[in-house]
C-alpha cells in the first residue's frame, strides 16, 4: 500500500505541490475506503474533514420536504470534496453520500488550518487551488442554470 505522502503527490488536486508542503499535509492525511451509502457528512454538521477522491463517486445532496434527498452534484475520481472547513463557522451546507464505493485520502481539517495559519505560502497555494475548484464548479453550475438541453437543439435533429 502506498504511503499517504505518495498518494497525495499523485492526486491531480495537489499536482506539482512543493515536496515540503506535501510532507506537512501528509501528517494529517490517511487513506480511507468507504462503501456505498456511507454518509461522509450531513447538512449542518461540523466540517472536520475534506477528501481527495481517488476512485468511486460521491454525491452532494440536501433534503427537501416531499422530494427526499435531492442530489445537486456528484464528485468523482480526481476531485476534491469539502471546502466548508476553510471558512467559519465550519459547517456543511450540503450533505455528501457515497454512491459508488470510494478510495480517498481523508484530511483532518483543524491541523491543516493551523499549518496554513503559520505558513502563508502554503495558505496561498491551497486557497488558490480551492479557489480554482470553486470557480470551475460555479461556472458549471451557471451553465446548468442555462438549462441548455431544455431548449431545442435542432439541426442536429
Amino acid at each position: 500500500m502506498m504511503a499517504p505522502r505518495d498518494l497525495l503527490a499523485e492526486h491531480p488536486f495537489l499536482a506539482g505541490l512543493e515536496p515540503r508542503w506535501l510532507d506537512n499535509l501528509a501528517e494529517h492525511a490517511h487513506p480511507v475506503y468507504r462503501n456505498r451509502q456511507h454518509r461522509l457528512f450531513a447538512v449542518g454538521g461540523s466540517a472536520r474533514h475534506f477528501w481527495l477522491i481517488r476512485s468511486g463517486l460521491v454525491v452532494l445532496d440536501i433534503h427537501a420536504p416531499g422530494r427526499g434527498d435531492v442530489v445537486v452534484e456528484s464528485i468523482g475520481a480526481g476531485a476534491v470534496l469539502g471546502w466548508s472547513w476553510l471558512f467559519s463557522p465550519y459547517r456543511w451546507s450540503f450533505g455528501a453520500v457515497v454512491v459508488e464505493a470510494i478510495q480517498a485520502i481523508e484530511f483532518e481539517a483543524a491541523p491543516v488550518r493551523r499549518l496554513m495559519a503559520v505558513d502563508p505560502g502554503l495558505s496561498a497555494e491551497l486557497t488558490g487551488r480551492f479557489m480554482r475548484v470553486v470557480v470551475e464548479r460555479l461556472q458549471a453550475t451557471r451553465v446548468r442554470l442555462l438549462d441548455l438541453y431544455g431548449f431545442p437543439t435542432g439541426a442536429k435533429p
Binding site: P12, L57, V59, V71, V72, E73, S74, G76, A77, G78, A79, V99, E136, R137, A140, T141, V143, R144, L146, L148, Y149, F151, T153, K156
Partner: peptide, 29 residues
Amino acid sequence: GRVGLVTALFDELWLDPGRTTAYVCGPEL
C-alpha cells in the same frame, strides 16, 4: 449516477493531449 455538467467528467480522466481527438456535439454553449 453522476450529476453535473459534462465537463466535470474530465476531472476523472487523464487525457493525453498528443493522442486525443475529441468529437463534441450538443447545444452551442
